[in-house]
Design a binder for these strands. Sequence first.
DNA 1: GTTAGCATGTAAGGAGTTACATGATTTT
DNA 2: AAAATCATGTAACTCCTTACATGCTAAC
Lengths: 200, 200
Amino acid sequence: MKQHGMLELAVLGLLKERTMHGYELRKQLGTMLGPFWQVSWGSLYPALRRLTKIGALEKVAEPKPRKTRTTSKTVKTTATTGRRKTVYRITTVGEELFSAMLEETSTSVDAEHFTLKLAFFRYLAPEARLTLLERRRAYLQEKLAQFKTNLKELGERIDSYTLSLQNHSMASTERDIKWIDELITEERRANPAPGDLRNA
Amino acid sequence: MKQHGMLELAVLGLLKERTMHGYELRKQLGTMLGPFWQVSWGSLYPALRRLTKIGALEKVAEPKPRKTRTTSKTVKTTATTGRRKTVYRITTVGEELFSAMLEETSTSVDAEHFTLKLAFFRYLAPEARLTLLERRRAYLQEKLAQFKTNLKELGERIDSYTLSLQNHSMASTERDIKWIDELITEERRANPAPGDLRNA
DNA sequence: GTTAGCATGTAAGGAGTTACATGATTTT
DNA sequence: AAAATCATGTAACTCCTTACATGCTAAC
């Protein structure tokens, strides 16, 4: 039971839709979560092994050891090196692990965790979605308050670059909050809470 | 010669202004770079030791070993444990290290590095500032293009959450670019390049 | 026939975190 | 006198990256 494991959550989530091999997985990661999310081979492949070892994934197509017809030299059967497309499929264990990780609300407040979970929101129950959105909102609001305190403390003795930085960061945070608000509104509209008599 | 060492750069930069002890340093870090930048003790204190060891910092006020008047029990001189406010000062070596790290353009393209360097922009030469700004701009533009490619590739089969995420991220990136543009404009206005005849 | 992209992995290490451990000083 | 906050540090660990190492396959 890992606390973090963002990569593992992402991998499991992608494999829920269809089987894929490592190389493909990496590209999909970039397309789904945006171009800032780039994983290296050095972390992806070990993650796949780990997940396979604990039974969350299984190899669907063993890379058939093939005879290397290396332009008629020595025809050697490269059993260990005969690797080509190790395709992975998620298991029942994996599905459960995915759900557990997705539902764990404790760590999901920072930008990266939140972004990742949002990408798999459709797998979450409506109430869990709202919880997450509200936690994220509260976190951002807290940071916003800290920005304001900072600016007062810094007062005059602050150079133009730092000031510009603070202002830009604050504005970004404010827009993030507005965006979360939109998501919350939309969420409530689609899944009204029991007892919510807004459209009576 | 570390490639990264963001923390060390930040510490040196703050100590350029005035001497500080660890605890104070941590708070200043938060106020200067925004509330998202929180370092833990477990990384700050080791960093201070490292910097001291290589001669970039020096302890300005040894924590005087004092007699612990522990309510008249055994009056023991706690020499090793008698620690209270280890104040650090930057040395000439440290100043040079700071400049070297700040001027190193290679790694400063991601958000965190860029933010950090911007906070110390006044210590950079105008040309170096422009170089950094333009590198960051190019990086963001590249990411923006990737966003657009992604959206085309994903096409229809994308859920509303992921779509919202992509759109928000793209909009953020676009605003970041605009902000950089403003910084560039302001920079050129304040320090016109030789041969720039804009205000002839 | 050689470059570019596909495909998989390992070893070493960097940068930081959490949890632990201790004690002083100030505020309530 | 208790609680909060100031203050410093260590050990173990996590997650990820870079650099290395290998080889296939398609395109030009």
